[in-house]
Structures are given as structure tokens and as C-alpha cells.
């Protein structure tokens, strides 16, 4: 019973947390190199969309 009441009091219990695999991938160099490239490409695409627009 005790542990249940402590669960109810602890807001962190209700929070989404990364699995060990997700945590590992966050610093796994080959995967991060790929993510580096992907994010840069996404950023460039978004910058392209955000250029000043000619007014009609």
C-alpha cells in the first residue's frame, strides 16, 4: 500500500521517459552522424520555406 501512495505523490511517475535503447542511441556516434545530416537537411528545407516573400 505504501508504494502506491508514494506513486500518487510523485509527479515524475506519470512522465514519459526514454528507454535505455533511446538513451544509448542519443550518444551512439554512427546514429548521431546520420541524425546530424538529417537535421541539417530538414533545417535547410525549412529555411528555404521561410525566405522573405514578395508581396502582391
Amino acid at each position: 500500500m505504501d508504494h502506491k501512495s508514494s506513486i500518487a505523490k510523485d509527479p515524475e511517475y506519470f512522465v514519459t521517459k526514454p528507454t535505455a535503447f533511446t538513451q544509448f542511441m542519443r550518444t551512439f556516434i554512427p546514429w548521431q552522424l546520420l541524425r546530424f545530416i538529417v537535421f541539417n537537411l530538414k533545417m535547410i528545407r525549412m529555411i528555404g520555406l521561410s525566405h522573405a516573400k514578395k508581396l502582391d
Binding site: 542511441m25 542519443r26 550518444t27 556516434i29 546514429w31 548521431q32 552522424l33 541524425r35 546530424f36 537535421f39 541539417n40 530538414k42 533545417m43 528545407r45 525549412m46 520555406l49
Partner: peptide
């Protein structure tokens, strides 16, 4: 499609 986010070491490199 353009709203996106992730956490990782590559973010620090960026």
C-alpha cells in the same frame, strides 16, 4: 512536416 524535434549528441554538434 516541418515541425520537428529530437534530443541527442548531434544537437550539440549543431
Amino acid at each position: 512536416g516541418y515541425t520537428f524535434g529530437e534530443i541527442g549528441l548531434s544537437g550539440h554538434w549543431i
